[in-house]
Nucleic acid binder design. Structure first.
Lengths: 129, 129
DNA sequence: GGATTGTATTCGAATATCCGAATACAACAA
DNA sequence: TTGTTGTATTCGGATATTCGAATACAATCC
């Protein structure tokens, strides 16, 4: 993954990174809703919900269909949103690894790299010489 | 998903939501690395990388094993990280839906809800009476 | 002991995000 | 046309994030 991609990916993730916006997305997974519907479902005021919807729109996560004076918001990338909600809802166990395991990993990686190019020595390893 | 969960999920997502931190995670997917290694791989200075690693540590996405003066960082929830990187790397098509489709969706949802409780009328619908 | 290397933390200024209040605007009803 | 409803936008202050510079700290070497 290049830096450019990281930048774009970070932008997308920022759109997800707010409790109210996540709640909005959760509601929209159930079906399209207008702002007033969301106002009843969420602990936030109308203006604020509209502001968050603007962020989600910029991120191309939601769009709306006009219905009279109302705007029915819907997910325009429903699979992305569902998968993201599932991912952050999942509770992966946190693993702790020992220095020995890590060392083995580093060496394995170093050997793999050595096949393609000269291994890079760390400052400390250079100093040892 | 409750508001509490949204709060926690948003915190987790914030840890991911930075180009440099995503790049660090990409590097760590390949194998454990110390700060100096990352300094060579990323367009960021040592202090800044340490700061971002602190954020990732707080989010329990990485941990380290001390190795002399160095700290070998590794992913402590590798599956979560890999799945997240895959998800944001994926490029889901953005779909636009017509008002008619949305309306059908809303009505389907309304019928489903009506089975369990009295339907809630919108302000506009109440005004029509 | 001092010097060096690898890393973390603190500080401060720049920037960004957040949210309420107020206001604007668009669709519709009367 | 005027009023009402649903929604968006603007403004401003509070808060948070970001990053460089400086410094602190810990391990190792001499």
């Amino acid at each position: 993954m290049e830096f450019q991609d990281s930048q774009a990916a970070a932008e997308l993730l920022k759109a997800f990174s707010h409790a109210t916006r996540l709640s909005i997305l959760v509601e929209l997974v159930a079906g399209p809703k207008c702002v007033t519907d969301m106002e009843e479902l969420l602990p936030a005021r109308q203006a604020n919900i509209s502001q968050h919807l603007a962020v989600l729109r910029n991120a191309k996560l939601v769009d709306y269909a006009q219905d009279g004076a109302m705007r029915c918001y819907y997910l325009c990338r429903p699979n992305l949103v569902k998968d993201m909600l599932a991912l952050v809802g999942r509770n992966d166990p946190v693993m702790k690894r020992t220095p020995v395991e890590i060392q083995a990993d580093k060496e394995r990686l170093a050997r793999a790299l050595a096949k393609n190019s000269a291994p890079k020595a760390s400052r400390r390893e250079v100093a040892k010489r």
